Amino acid sequence: MEKILTGIRSTGTPHLGNILGVIIPSVGIVNRNEKHSSFIFIADLHSMIQINNIKTIINNTYQIAAAWLAFGLNTENCFFYRQSDVSEVTELAWYFSCFFPYQRLTLAHSFKNEISKIDKRKISMGLFAYPILMAADILLYNAQIVPVGKDQLQHIEITRRIATSFNQRIGKKLFVLPNAFLQKKTMSVPGTDGKKMSKSKKNWINIFSSDEILKKQIMSIRTDSKSLEEKKDPETDYVMSLYKLIAPLDKIDKMKKKYLKGGYGYSEAKIALYELIIHKFSTERKKFFSFIKNKSLLDHILSLGAEKAKRIANERLNDIRKCLKLKPIKSN
């Protein structure tokens, strides 16, 4: 049985890019109950790199849990848990950090990109060691498939290097080499400015916001300066790009014809996108707000998932400790 692992950092409510690129495909895999063992976790430890306020991280964690559940995740068919509830991952990350060369981590694109934006005096070890903790997330369960975006491909390669290096050191194939899985259709969902949708770029669309805010976000999508009467290119327009990711084929075809005919403005296209989102995700929006009002239920669901995950994590970590000649830890 193949193991699939997916994590989303608790940096805020999942945006449309997260939903199309990660949540919907993952829920489909889990709920079809195929020959996969799925691990879906909320990466609150990773979030500490960006967010110092613990209350904010806790609140964000609830938002993410509610989003997954609103889209119908069957938690009986997977391991759905909060990263910090499985402490074995941080112990494994420490072992990896002791065996993996510092120089290779300095080559990580994510690290180089971040340090170019911030004061070097504010760079944390957490930011530098991010790929190590990510490797521990994956290798603790020997996940073979990891759905990621393009920007995470190098981290999967680092994880493979860590696994290979560790296996060679202990003379045993303790870790399998994971493979990245890219959702081709939604691997890069454009934001309101046409660049990849991201909270940090403030170009995101939050389907769980109020109708007023959601409409405002959609109306802010960047377009060219063509007049109402002019023909428009459906292949280069950002509104159309988002519409094509959500709408059924017949509606996409109708929208394309309107673009190419002329006499159809971008404001009308944006309203059509807004109405599509409101209609398509109406059930999920209602469920989301219901879960947010019942945080004790969310805690219960995440705790049950953590208990299941910890049983596997503890067994795996004891195998690793044995290879390192360390005393095993008894499970509770």
Rank of each mutant, 00 (worst) to 15 (best):
T186R: 04
Q168H: 09
A180T: 05
K244L: 08
S110K: 11
I19M: 03
D253I: 15
A247M: 06
V30P: 10
I51T: 11
R9E: 01
M219D: 12
S10M: 00
R121Y: 05
H279C: 05
K202T: 11
N314Y: 06
N59A: 07
E275G: 07
L304F: 14
Q50H: 13
N59Q: 07
S97C: 09
L214M: 13
I8F: 00
L302P: 15
K35S: 08
S282G: 00
I51V: 13
K196E: 05
S225E: 12
S267V: 15
P178H: 04
N167C: 01
A66N: 03
Y243W: 02
F181D: 03
R104F: 11
S84F: 04
H300W: 10
D211L: 05
V22A: 12
T283G: 01
I132L: 08
L92G: 10
R285W: 01
H15F: 04
E88K: 11
L242T: 00
Y130V: 04
D137C: 11
G194W: 03
K287F: 07
M125I: 10
K55W: 01
N52S: 14
S116A: 15
L153Y: 06
E307V: 15
V89N: 09
G265F: 12
E91G: 00
K184Y: 12
K232D: 08
K280N: 03
K322D: 09
E34R: 10
H300P: 02
E88T: 09
S116F: 04
L5W: 04
K251E: 15
D193I: 11
I252V: 15
L324S: 05
A66R: 00
K280V: 07
K280W: 02
T164V: 04
S290W: 00
A93N: 14
A43N: 11
K120G: 01
S331R: 07
A269T: 09
I115F: 03
D253F: 08
E275H: 13
V239A: 04
K231S: 15
E114P: 00
P25C: 13
K201R: 06
M1T: 09
A136H: 12
S282Y: 01
E212Y: 11
L20I: 01
K293R: 14
T61D: 02
V148H: 09
S220T: 12
M187A: 14
T61A: 13
D299R: 15
I170D: 03
G194H: 08
I246R: 12
V86F: 14
A136M: 04
